[in-house]
Amino acid sequence: MNEVTHRDRAQIIAKLNDEFRTTLTGGTVLMTAGVEALGPQFVAKALASVRAFNEFTEDNDPHREHDFGAFSIRGQKLFWKIDYYDQSMRYGSENPCDPEATCRVLTVMLAEEY
C-alpha cells in the first residue's frame, strides 16, 4: 500500500468530515447543555447552520481537515468540533482516514462553553 502524504491525509479526513457534518450520519452528534437549554427550535437552527457551514479559512482550519467551525444565531456565538475516537470510544483514533477504525463525534457548543 502506498504511503499517504500529509496533504492526501488531510483531504481524506476533510471529505469524511464534510460527509458527516452535512448529513449528520456516520457518527455521533452531541449538543452541550447550554445549546439544549435554548430550546428545540434553537437546536434545529444550530444543526442547520452546522450542515450548511463552508467558511473554512486558514484561521479556522489550519490543518485543512474541516473539523471546526464558528457561527452565530440570535446573537449567540457557537462552535462545532469533530473529534476522532477508536471503535471503543475510549481513545483517540489512530487513523482518522479510516472510517472503519474511527468513530466521529460532532459537538455543537456555545462559545462560552468551549
Score class of each variant (00 low, 15 high):
Ser49Val: 05
Ala10Lys: 12
Ala70Ser: 10
Glu94Met: 09
Asp67Asn: 07
Ser72Glu: 12
Leu30Tyr: 10
Gly27His: 01
Tyr91Trp: 15
Phe68Pro: 01
Arg90Thr: 14
Ile13Val: 03
Gly75Val: 02
Phe42Pro: 00
Glu36Thr: 09
Val4Ser: 04
Met31His: 08
Phe53Met: 03
Pro40Arg: 15
Met89Pro: 07
Pro40Thr: 15
Val29Trp: 04
Val50Gly: 01
Ala44Ile: 08
Glu55Cys: 11
Lys77His: 07
Pro99Phe: 11
Glu58Val: 15
Trp80Lys: 03
Leu78Val: 05
Val50Arg: 01
Glu36His: 11
Phe71Val: 11
Leu47Gln: 10
Asp86Leu: 02
Ser72Lys: 13
Ala44Asn: 03
Arg64Gln: 11
Pro62Lys: 12
Ala46Gly: 01
Val43Arg: 01
Val108Ala: 04
Glu65Asp: 05
Pro96Asn: 08
Phe20Tyr: 01
Arg74Phe: 08
Val108Gln: 03
Asn60Phe: 09
Pro96Leu: 08
Phe42Trp: 06
Thr25Ile: 11
Asp67Trp: 06
Arg74Tyr: 09
Gly92Ala: 07
Gln11Val: 15
Glu112His: 12
Pro96His: 10
His66Asn: 04
Ile12Trp: 04
Lys45Arg: 13
Val43Glu: 01
Gln76His: 04
Val35Arg: 00
Ser88Phe: 12
Asp98Leu: 05
Ala48His: 07
Ala52Ile: 12
Gly69Cys: 09
Ile13Trp: 00
Ala14Glu: 06
Ala101Pro: 01
Asn2Pro: 04
Tyr91Gln: 12
Ala46Trp: 00
Thr23Ala: 04
Gln11Leu: 15
Leu24Cys: 06
Tyr91Ala: 11
Thr5Ser: 10
Ser93Cys: 02
Glu100Ser: 09
Lys81Pro: 02
Leu106Met: 09
Glu55Asp: 15
Gln11Asn: 14
Gly39Phe: 05
Thr28Ile: 15
Val35Gly: 00
Phe56Ser: 07
Arg21Cys: 01
Ile12Phe: 07
Met89Glu: 10
Ser88His: 14
Asp98Trp: 11
Ser49Tyr: 03
Ile73Lys: 00
Phe71Arg: 06
Pro40Asn: 15
Val35Trp: 00
Ile82Met: 09
Leu47Cys: 06
Met31Trp: 08
Thr57Ile: 09
Glu55Ile: 14
Asp83Glu: 09
Leu78Cys: 04
Val50Met: 05
His66Asp: 04
Thr102Trp: 03
Val43Lys: 02
Asn54Gly: 14
Thr107Ile: 09
Phe71Leu: 10
Leu38Lys: 05
Ala33Gly: 14
Thr5Val: 11
Arg64Tyr: 14
Ser88Gly: 12
Glu65Val: 08
Arg51Gln: 11
Thr5Met: 11
Leu38Trp: 06
Arg21Asp: 00
Asp18His: 13
Ala44Gly: 07
Pro40Ser: 15
Thr28Leu: 13
Tyr84His: 10
Ala44Asp: 05
Ile13Asn: 00
Leu30Ile: 08
Arg9Pro: 02
Ala37Asp: 12
Ala101Val: 11
His6Phe: 13
Ala44Phe: 05
Ile73Met: 02
His63Pro: 00
Glu19Ala: 11
